[in-house]
Design a binder for these strands. Structure first.
Lengths: 151, 151
DNA sequence: GTAATTTCTAAACCTAACTTTAGCTCAAGC
DNA sequence: GCTTGAGCTAAAGTTAGGTTTAGAAATTAC
């Protein structure tokens, strides 16, 4: 099944746990570049298993496919990550992850200051500005939640 | 502009910073139940500003719209959250957030144990099982990244 | 009273990351 | 050599959370 002359897409799927359709999709996104055999079927390098493993792990850290493609293409000759490459790239994962955690922790701190408050006033409540990695609109919300009585 | 007999959707948008289309969408998702005036236009309670504020905050904590709808409907008579309701609901936010943070911290710990490793072996690498709030498929991945040589 | 703004509905479109379907071709097993 | 199973492509579908568009009706402003 695992032909000596390149791996089939089905074999790769079996080895990585990915769906065949996902592997084709990744190719379309430029994460892999299989060649074709005489009959037009995709053939993969054994190293592509490692490449796909890297993709799967990078996704866990919240990277998008375009970002992962960039990480992969930062490797000399667009090669598949080696053990040494991994050490370098994973430092970037660490940074990315730390930032996500910090954002959530800030949100938690703001929440703690708000649990007893309940004003939910949009102009003043810290929760509205907490955890924004980037401000969305020019103006941002002005608004409130503790307002006047009814209707 | 803010008619004494109910608020227009445009006014609500102005007060909350939400797009008019988003407010209509939230209504379609069951988060709001405006009534209609003689001409068929939506009219909202002033308390709906608070209701929308709650929705916006809950989204920051990672809740989906169906989840937020449930939280709102857990209130007696489907009322808009009061200060007291907020204290109770926000405890749930805290729990939810703590879980998300814990997941990411576990991922970070696993990464730290893996940075120098570089095996990326799918059957044995902790990164594959780290941070899964729920196992995805029946079987799960078996797989690897540290495999045999090449091609 | 008329013009400009809002609002209305329904349906289509958007992004991300895939999956599903349809209709065919290729490859492998016996 | 014939029957399956695996693979191929292109296009459409999926989910979440909305936005955009089109064309019509209501409301507000002057």
């Amino acid at each position: 099944m695992a032909a000596s002359h390149g791996l089939s897409i089905g074999y790769l799927a079996e080895r990585t746990g990915l769906a065949v359709s996902a592997i084709r999709y990744y190719e379309a996104q430029g994460l892999l570049e299989p060649w074709r055999n005489a009959g037009g079927q995709r053939r993969f390098h054994r190293a592509d298993i490692r490449r796909l493993s890297f993709v799967m792990i990078a996704q866990k850290f919240g990277f998008t496919l375009p970002e992962i493609r960039e990480q992969l293409s930062s490797l000399p000759g667009g090669r598949t990550p080696t053990k040494e490459d991994w050490s370098r790239l994973s430092e970037g994962f660490r940074t990315h992850l730390d930032a996500r955690i910090a954002t959530l922790e800030k949100l938690r701190d703001d929440l703690d200051g708000c649990i007893g408050c309940g004003c939910l006033s949009l102009p003043s409540c810290a929760l509205y500005n907490a955890g924004d990695s980037a401000a969305k609109n020019g103006q941002g919300p002005r608004f409130l939640m503790g307002d006047s009585p009814e209707t």
